[in-house]
Design a protein around this nucleic acid. Structure first.
Lengths: 102, 102
DNA sequence: AAATCTTACGGGTGACGTAACGATC
DNA sequence: GATCGTTACGTCACCCGTAAGATTT
C-alpha cells in the first residue's frame, strides 16, 4: 500500500470519474485504473462500482474513504506543523535544501 | 514520503536503536538509516538526535511521532475493518486472491 | 462512433542490500 | 577493538506512460 495511491483513491472518490481524477492528479488514466485495482486487491474487495459509464463508491468503499480521509488529514497536518516549526526555529542547516510544498 | 518509511520511523522511535529497529523490521541497518535521513530531509528538520551511541527523538521528532501514530492507527484500523467486512460478506469473487494479513 | 475504463507491455526511478568508511565507548 | 551509524554503489522491484482492447451510450 502506498500514500500516493490513497490520495488517488480520495480524488477518484471525489470526482467519480477516472478520466477527471487522472487529469487532476497529473497522471494517465491507465495508471490510475491500475493503482485502484491494486488497492482493491490488497483490501480484498471492490471499492468502486462501475456500472456503465458512471463510477460510484461501494458501501465498503465509503467506509474506507472516511478512514483514509481522517488518516491523511492528521498526517498532512502533522507534516505541515513540523515543517513550519522547522522553518520558524531556523533549524535549516547550511546545505540543507528547503523542502518544496506538496 | 512513504507509508513504510513512516512505519520505520515509529519502530525506530520505539526502540531508540537503528540496529534493533532494522532487525525487527527485517531490513538492513543502512536501509533504515537512509530512509530516516530522507524523511528528515523531506521535513526539513532532524527527527533524531544522535549523540554518541544513543539515538533519541528531538522535540519536533516527538511531535511528528504523535501525528504519525494517530494517522497510522486510524488507517490500519480502517484497513482491518474493510478486510474483515469483505471476508465476512463473502464478497471474494472467483479468482480473487484472499489477501494475507500484514 | 465516441468516450470511458481495462489489460498488456516497456522504461525509468527509487528502495533495498552489500561493501567500505567513520565514530564512539 | 568492538559496536553502531553513515556513505557509496549496484541491483531489482514497482510505478507510470504508451499502445491496444473491451464496453457502454
Amino acid at each position: 500500500m502506498n500514500l500516493i495511491h490513497l490520495r488517488y483513491f480520495v480524488e477518484l472518490s471525489r470526482t467519480g470519474s477516472y478520466t477527471q481524477a487522472a487529469r487532476r492528479l497529473c497522471i494517465t488514466q491507465p495508471s490510475l485504473s491500475h493503482a485502484m485495482a491494486q488497492l482493491e486487491e490488497e483490501l480484498g474487495t471492490e471499492l468502486f462500482r462501475r456500472q456503465g459509464r458512471t463510477t460510484a463508491l461501494t458501501p465498503l468503499g465509503e467506509q474506507f474513504l472516511t478512514s483514509v480521509h481522517q488518516s491523511l488529514d492528521i498526517l498532512d497536518r502533522g507534516i505541515e506543523e513540523v515543517r513550519q516549526a522547522a522553518r520558524g526555529a531556523g533549524l535549516l542547516r547550511i546545505g540543507m535544501v528547503r523542502p518544496l510544498a506538496v
